[in-house]
C-alpha cells in the first residue's frame, strides 16, 4: 500500500505520439523507434520491476531462511536434550553397575 519503491506517476505515452508529427515531410521516413522520453520511462519501469523483484527475493530468502532455521534450531534443542538424557542414562548405568559390584562384595 505504501511501497518504498518509486512509482510512475503518469501513464507512459504511446510510441506513435512522438513519431507521427515527424513523418514524410522531406521524403525521409522518421526512424520508428523510441524517443528519449519513452526510453527513459521504460528504463524507469525496468528499474522499478528490478527493485521490486530484488526486494521480493530478499524477503523470500529471509522468510524461508528464518522458517527453516527455526526448525533447525528446534532440532538442535532436541539434540542437546537427547544428549543430556544419554548422559543421564550413562550415569544410571554406572550407578547400577556400582551397586551390582557392591552386592557381589556383600554389604
Amino acid at each position: 500500500m505504501n511501497p518504498t519503491i518509486p512509482t510512475l506517476t503518469k501513464a507512459p505515452p504511446t510510441a506513435d505520439q512522438g513519431a507521427a508529427p515527424a513523418a514524410a515531410e522531406d521524403g525521409y521516413e522518421a526512424v520508428t523507434g523510441l524517443d528519449k522520453e519513452t526510453v527513459a520511462l521504460k528504463r524507469t519501469y525496468e528499474a522499478e520491476v528490478e527493485a521490486k523483484v530484488a526486494s521480493d527475493y530478499s524477503h523470500i530468502v529471509w522468510a524461508y531462511g528464518i522458517l527453516w532455521s527455526l526448525f533447525c534450531g528446534f532440532a538442535i534443542v532436541l539434540l542437546v536434550r537427547g544428549s543430556r538424557q544419554q548422559r543421564d542414562l550413562q550415569a544410571l548405568r554406572r550407578e547400577l553397575e556400582r551397586r551390582g559390584e557392591q552386592a557381589v562384595d556383600g554389604p
Binding site: 500500500m1 505504501n2 511501497p3 521480493d56 523470500i60 522468510a63 522458517l67 527455526l70
Partner: peptide, 25 residues
C-alpha cells in the same frame, strides 16, 4: 505445546516479512 510455540513464531515472522514486502509494513 512446544511445537505450537515454534510454528507460531515461524508463522508470525514469515507473516511480518511478507507484510513488509507487500504492504510495506
Amino acid at each position: 505445546g512446544e511445537v505450537c510455540a515454534l510454528l507460531g513464531i515461524g508463522a508470525l515472522m514469515s507473516g511480518a516479512i511478507w507484510g513488509d514486502a507487500t504492504w510495506g509494513t
